[in-house]
Design a protein around this nucleic acid. Structure first.
Length: 894
DNA sequence: TTAGGGTTAG
């Protein structure tokens, strides 16, 4: 069917196959096409491209008679759109006097594969086989490569066998090579190995183009050793070239073996095999991405030595890498080199340098600018200023950023600001929207909301457009400062400017309303959000629920959640859990239980955490049997109780006087490999002590230590307190010292427990020592604390004991026991005098002590009510002969 | 250039 002069099987020309490349070649040279064929083809293209297309077009009908495979092949190559080409191809198929040959099929296949149209390509392949058109190995190879290039490996493989089976093609080494090339892309090692064996069995020799796909398939499949074997074979046979080297080097990089890749490049270089330009570029990018700028630079120099001239994008990536590594000077050197080589730096390179040098402070940045400023085109100058503003903002110099921006706006420069010296001789550049945005965002971050707002207004006056994101950021700033009205106003302004609020804008305001506990406002906002299809963020709803519950408004919290459901937003289990917890904390266990059941009705399955809250509530309400029931139910629901679940239940049993039951749950934890934590042990140790079983508590403490569970401060305090309660102050003291050794500070009640326990044991000296330590460490309880009375009694006892009374007196003299001394609010002088005497201050003769006592007395909040008695006291002190203290007393008094 | 929110011991 081919016309005279048409090359019958052009693909054969490729049989020596230059590297099988992605670009599929057509061997039909345009100059070989007879001019009348070319005219017909062009006319056809024009008709099929014009809209509307009509098959009835009389011109088309006359051209139909002139169809031949040459015309069709030429026309197919001339279409710009694959769709039009395909339409023409189908039309041609339907012309009674025309029949496609392998070259028209291949022309269509090429168009479809380039357009990545797999479905019509698959149909075309089937048609080729069905039409029984014969083909040379080269033509088959071409079609196979079309299929391979779009990943249709199975189709290529099947086609290969079918054409052989139907006798349409006799394979040769070239057709095998094409098939291997197609399969190698897929990483299907088995298939490649099978075809390779088949090829050898049929007596075909391997060549470079056989082994290169083999190398590729091993690389793609990550088969490191096999890939190396293939490469070595290629190398030994003297076939290694830039392409083969690139395949392996790029794979090394993909596997993260950057150093190996580099070694390979060096070894091959010694043997005169060098990378091609593209591979150099890919590798340099890859090395920088892997933070191996050193290797990237070495490659870069090799690339230059190989005679390639790097373009601006390579300088950009290298300078970027150096900047990232904080190698500012090297980056600047590369920049100079680039300029010397007449490669024009672009704003990307310049921005990288600026942001890198800005980390070194303003001095460094100025030094850089002096070097590069003249290289920057007028239109890019504002970008430099913006980079500068950005760096000032990022380094916290927001004030300087504002000054520079003012200068840009023509408001003037501050003489004292060092950074501005550079800009002083320069012609100022007017700011753009980005300049304002940078500074406003910086001001917002620095909590200078009012400045940000005024700049936002000025920005518009300056003719710069306020973008949506900036509106959002300012609304966010206002909401974070609880300036709700202004944020509403800005939201309206934003809408008037033609911006539709985003989910973020609405949620800023919703969050603010929730923080303010404004339930109706929050619901109104939810309604508005529903109109826009925005989802209220659950963190805000949860916060509102928590805040309401904290203030005892559990009913409102429940209603809020119900209203949300009403508005079509179903809160999640977390918001409900917060509400459950609020109810439980408020003692509303029945309401909590009802909500717990309602949650399930809403389609949630309460999780472990929600169960924990309920178990806590039930235990708190002493409904321990129900708590245990809920615990058992968890397992039937497929929930695995957490350590916290166990801890809560164990605590419930302890508090309910069922310590043995609690211990059973501890055993069950070990059985279920649920490791108890320090809270489990602390709860039980506390429970055992409360049950009067200090020896068991000690055993459990030892077990905890043995299990490498580190006791916490709370654990120590509970244990010491418990031992004291059980009358074991000496054991308690050992742990008290251990606690101090670990730099853990005990709370006041621990000291009190020890003092009381030692006193009960009649060990006055030890009791005094602990009391003294409590005083020295300022751990005396607050007068409103119930322990306060205990200390008072203790002091009283110690002051009456011969071993400790003088030490107590001296503590009083030092003024270390202030509030103890004046522990009641009686304002009569008699009561005061009695107190003094009770601490072995003989009458008022020891005026020094009395005066000190007086000063502390004055510090008490009931000063106003004791003015008269104090005045009398002062006189008495005076008659006792202590004038200094008296003066002080008077100063305080008057 | 837009998460993290709910539960345990003295």
């Amino acid at each position: 069917m081919a016309l005279p002069g048409t090359i019958k099987n052009p693909q054969n020309l490729c049989n020596s196959l230059k590297p099988i490349c992605k670009h599929l070649l057509f061997a039909r040279n345009i100059s070989n096409i007879p001019s009348d064929e070319s005219t017909v083809a062009n006319d056809l293209i024009s008709i099929f491209t014009k809209q509307p297309f009509s098959p009835e077009n009389p011109e088309l009908q006359s051209l139909a008679g002139m169809l031949n495979t040459g015309v069709v092949e030429t026309a197919l190559k001339g279409f710009r759109s694959w769709k039009a080409a395909h339409k023409f191809f189908i039309w041609a198929s339907n012309q009674w006097a025309f029949r496609h040959n392998v070259y028209t099929y291949n022309a269509m296949a090429s168009v479809l594969s380039r357009a990545r149209q797999n479905a019509p390509l698959r149909a075309l392949t089937a048609e080729v086989v069905n039409s029984r058109c014969s083909m040379s190995p080269g033509a088959l190879g071409f079609l196979v490569r079309c299929l391979g290039s779009v990943g249709m490996v199975d189709e290529a493989n099947a086609l290969f066998d079918e054409v052989r089976k139907k006798g349409l093609c006799v394979h040769n080494d070239y057709s095998y090579n094409c098939l291997l090339e197609a399969v190698s892309r897929s990483g299907r090692v088995d298939l490649v190995e099978m075809r390779l064996k088949e090829m050898r069995d049929q007596g075909w020799e391997y060549d470079k183009y056989t082994l290169t796909p083999v190398l590729k398939v091993y690389c793609n499949a990550g088969r490191f050793d096999k890939a190396l074997d293939a490469f070595n074979e290629i190398f030994d046979r003297g076939w290694a070239d830039a392409h083969v080297l690139s395949v392996l080097v790029l794979s090394f990089c993909k596997w993260g073996e950057v150093d190996k890749a580099f070694e390979l490049v060096e070894t091959m270089e010694d043997r005169d095999v060098r990378l091609n330009e593209k591979t150099f570029c890919v590798l340099i990018h890859g090395f920088v991405k892997e933070s191996r700028v050193d290797k990237a630079l070495q490659l870069f120099h090799k690339m230059q030595q190989s005679g390639f001239v790097p373009d601006v994008s390579l300088y950009d990536v290298l300078i970027g890498g150096l900047c990232m590594n904080k190698e500012h000077e090297k980056a600047l050197c590369l920049y100079s080199e680039m300029k010397n080589l007449k490669v024009k730096p672009d704003i990307g390179v310049i921005s990288k340098l600026i942001s890198s040098f800005s980390e070194g402070g303003e001095g460094e940045l100025t030094r850089l600018l002096e070097e590069i400023y003249d290289d920057i085109g007028v239109e890019d100058k504002v970008l430099v200023y913006n980079s500068f503003l950005n760096s000032l903002v990022n380094t916290g110099s927001i004030g300087k950023a504002c000054q520079l921006l003012s200068a840009m706006m023509g408001i003037g420069l501050d003489e004292d600001v060092e950074i501005n010296k550079f800009f002083r001789d320069k012609e100022m550049v007017a700011p753009n929207a980005n300049s304002f945005t940078t500074v406003i965002n910086g001001l917002l971050k620095a909590n200078k909301l009012d400045l940000a707002l005024s700049l936002f207004v000025e920005m518009a006056q300056f003719g710069c457009k306020q973008e949506l994101q900036l509106y959002n950021n300012i609304i966010d700033g206002l909401c974070n400062s609880n300036r709700l009205e202004e944020s509403y106003k800005l939201l309206r302004q934003m809408e008037e400017s033609g911006f539709e609020p985003t989910q973020f804008s609405h949620n800023c305001i919703f969050g603010c309303l929730c923080r303010k506990k404004d339930v109706s406002g929050a619901i109104d906002m939810i309604k508005k959000m529903r109109v826009y299809g925005h989802e209220p963020w659950i963190k805000h709803s949860t916060l509102l629920v928590k805040e309401l519950c904290k203030n005892g408004k559990t009913l409102e919290a429940c209603k809020f959640l119900a209203d949300m459901v009403q508005e079509g937003f179903r809160p999640d289990i977390i918001a409900y859990s917060a509400c459950l917890d609020g109810l439980v904390k408020n003692g509303e266990i029945d309401a909590a239980f009802k909500l717990f059941q309602d949650i399930s009705a809403l389609g949630f399955c309460p999780d472990v955490l929600a169960h924990n809250i309920m178990i806590k509530g039930l235990c708190k309400a002493q409904r321990i049997a129900e708590a245990r029931h809920l615990f058992n139910e968890m397992e039937t629901k497929g929930l695995v109780p957490s350590v916290i679940t166990y801890n809560l239940l164990i605590d419930g049993f302890c508090k309910n006087g069922q310590i043995d039951e609690a211990m059973l749950y501890l055993s069950s934890m070990f059985g279920k490999e649920k490791e108890p934590n320090v809270i489990t042990y602390t709860t039980l140790i506390n429970g055992l002590c409360n049950a009067g079983r200090p020896d068991d508590a000690i055993l459990l403490w030892d077990k905890m230590v043995e299990k490498k569970c580190d006791p916490s401060r709370v654990a120590f305090m509970a244990f010491i307190h418990g031992l004291c309660k059980c009358g074991r102050p000496n054991s308690a003291l050992v742990h008290f010292h251990e606690m101090e050794k670990r730099k853990m500070e005990p709370d006041s009640f621990v000291y009190v427990a020890l003092v009381s326990a030692f006193l009960a044991d009649l060990n006055f000296v030890s009791a005094y020592e602990i009391l003294k330590e409590m005083v020295d460490k300022e751990k005396l309880p607050d007068p409103h604390d119930k322990n306060y009375t205990i200390v008072r009694v203790a002091v009283s006892k110690l002051s009456e004991n011969a071993q400790t009374s003088s030490s107590i007196t001296s503590l009083i003299r030092q003024g270390s026991l202030p509030t103890i001394l004046y522990s009641d609010n009686r304002d009569d002088i008699t009561s005061f005098r009695i107190k003094l005497e009770s601490f072995h201050t003989p009458g008022l003769a020891d005026a020094g002590c009395a005066a000190v006592a007086l000063l502390y007395f004055l510090r008490q909040s009931f000063f106003g009510t004791v003015r008269r008695p104090v005045r009398i006291l002062c006189q008495e002190i005076c008659s006792g002969g202590s004038k200094v203290e008296l003066k002080m007393g008077r100063q305080q008094l008057e």
